[in-house]
Amino acid sequence: MIVKLVQDMSVAETEILIKYNEMTEDVIRVTEMIKSATTRIKCTCDSGEKLVNVSDIYYFESVDKMTFVYCGKEVYKTDIRLYQIVNDFGHLGFVQISKSCVLNMNALDSVSTLPNSRMEATLKNNEKVHVSRKYLENIKSALYKGV
């Protein structure tokens, strides 16, 4: 894949053009990654409200009817419910991996089994999250789709 950056002072808004001869998994993935880099959600933190890039989010977790947003190092809160996250951001690589967690597949490094037949996902920042066996199939099908 060749990546070219062309500066054009006459354009008002950044335009991304992807040239391809066949719609492959890689093309789909790159397209979704670009979309996720420009999609933001409103979150709250100690310092107030913030717009967080979806591509920076590692996972969402629902605890006590609140949805927490976990980025590499920061944690925020959002009003969006888990089912909305799956509906709105599923095409950007967000997959439900347990009853209370939706993971960004781009942040997933590996999956391992635990001695008590549980599973955990290791993320790129070495954080570990629980994977429910009921949702293991979601991860597999997302990877086959090229997410």
């Binding site: 999956v111 991860i139 597999k140 086959y144």
Partner: peptide
């Protein structure tokens, strides 16, 4: 079966 699924996922990753 779970172990097989996990191995498959890790290969895809």
């Amino acid at each position: 079966r779970i172990r097989e699924d996990v191995n498959e996922i890790n290969k895809l990753l």
